[in-house]
Amino acid sequence: MTGSSERLVRLLNMVPYLRANPGVSYDQAAADLGVSRNQLAKDLAQLTFCGLPGGAGGDLIDICYDDDGLAIDVLDSQGMDHPLRLTSTEAATLLLALRALADVPGLVDPAATRSALAKVEAAAGGVPPEGHPPAGAQESAAVAAVRAAVRDRCALSIEYYSASRDALGSRVVDPIRVTLIDNQSYLEAWSREADGVRLFRFDRIQAAVMLDEPSAPPEPAVAAETDTGLFNADPALPSATLRIAPDSAWMLEYYPMRLLAENADGSLDAAMTYASEAWMSRLLLGFGSAVTVLEPAALAEQVRAAAAEALRAYDLTD
């Protein structure tokens, strides 16, 4: 569990704990909650900004505690010490959100998601949609290993398919976090091979093994926000500018591309890096007239020549 998740769970538990122990001292509360006195003070300050929508004085949790730490009292819990009651609309919305979250690999524990879904469905008096598979049931061994490595802060050995290089490679990484970008989940990690932060798409991680050593990414890499500029790939690699027909716009979700322009006819101009001109030519041939190479000229000529050769071969066998 990440630090932010741990704190969320602790904050959710603090209000009923403090309600059940009115006047508890800082030292006793810190010991019972398993945190330092300094962290407890930070958590109490955070709780005073939590509550119901609106954010006005009467909408927020009200906690009374003095500077000498002798006593802590909850004056207004905003209902956080009572069981949650959902309307049918809220329950349906929550179920949809849980199922959507469960469909994205690596973000959540499938067992926890199934348990939460079952509880909400039971409370709402409903049943899972007919034919809908259990949430998270299809998690692969690789995805489970990545989640475990992030949770336990362990180094990871992965087999990863690079679409731009059309190659499967092995590397050892130090996981930082799991992140969601454009409805795709990625492992953000420090690549020891590249000596830098890289993003690894979950559906391209073919295998993963958690190593018996701690994950040790540089602190600045951990503190920094996710850099989506990593999608621009290696600047040392050649780049092609492509014009993609509207019906093939899905390419931008599957291949590492950068959108350059949206044209009036619905077509898209995008840049894509590649390591092998021969591989890139084969890839583009498969899309036929749906993708046009705008530049470089050498790649466009190679694609045209390969297409002409294929047509000649077809004529000979016809």
Rank of each mutant, 00 (worst) to 15 (best):
S4L: 15
S5M: 10
V9I: 14
L11W: 02
M14E: 08
V15Q: 01
V15L: 03
N21Y: 04
N21P: 02
P22Y: 02
G23N: 00
S25K: 07
D27T: 12
Q28K: 15
D32L: 00
L33V: 02
G34I: 02
V35L: 06
V35T: 00
S36M: 01
R37K: 15
N38T: 13
Q39N: 11
Q39Y: 03
A41Y: 07
D43Y: 02
D43K: 01
L44T: 02
Q46M: 14
G51P: 09
G54W: 06
G58F: 07
L60T: 09
D68L: 09
G69K: 11
G69C: 08
A71S: 14
I72Y: 02
V74C: 01
S77I: 01
G79A: 00
H82R: 14
L86C: 05
A91D: 06
A92Y: 05
L94M: 14
L95F: 08
V104M: 12
P105V: 01
L107N: 00
V108S: 13
A111S: 13
S115I: 03
S115Y: 12
A118D: 15
V120Y: 06
E121Y: 09
E121W: 07
A123H: 07
G125L: 05
G125W: 00
G125I: 02
G126E: 13
G126Y: 05
P128T: 11
P133V: 04
A135E: 05
G136E: 01
G136A: 00
A137W: 00
A137D: 08
Q138V: 11
A141E: 14
A142E: 03
V143P: 02
V143L: 04
A144I: 03
D152W: 06
D152V: 00
S157I: 00
I158Y: 08
E159Y: 05
Y161A: 05
A163V: 13
D166Y: 01
L168K: 10
G169I: 11
V173K: 07
P175V: 04
V178T: 09
L180M: 11
I181R: 04
I181K: 01
N183I: 00
Y186K: 03
L187G: 03
A189V: 01
W190M: 06
W190A: 08
A194L: 09
D195E: 15
D195S: 14
G196P: 06
V197C: 11
R201G: 14
F202H: 13
F202Q: 12
I205E: 01
I205C: 05
V209R: 15
M210C: 14
E213D: 08
E213H: 07
A216K: 14
P217N: 02
E219W: 10
A221G: 06
A224D: 04
E225Q: 12
T226H: 05
T226Q: 00
T226E: 01
D227S: 02
G229I: 01
F231N: 07
P235V: 04
L237W: 12
A240P: 05
R243H: 10
I244A: 05
A245E: 09
D247Q: 14
A249M: 06
A249I: 10
E253R: 09
Y255H: 13
L268D: 09
A270Q: 04
A271D: 12
A271I: 04
A271E: 12
T273D: 11
A275C: 07
R282I: 03
R282W: 10
L284N: 04
L285F: 04
G288L: 11
G288W: 13
A290T: 08
A290G: 08
V291D: 02
E295G: 15
R304K: 13
A308P: 01
A310R: 15
L311I: 11
D318M: 15
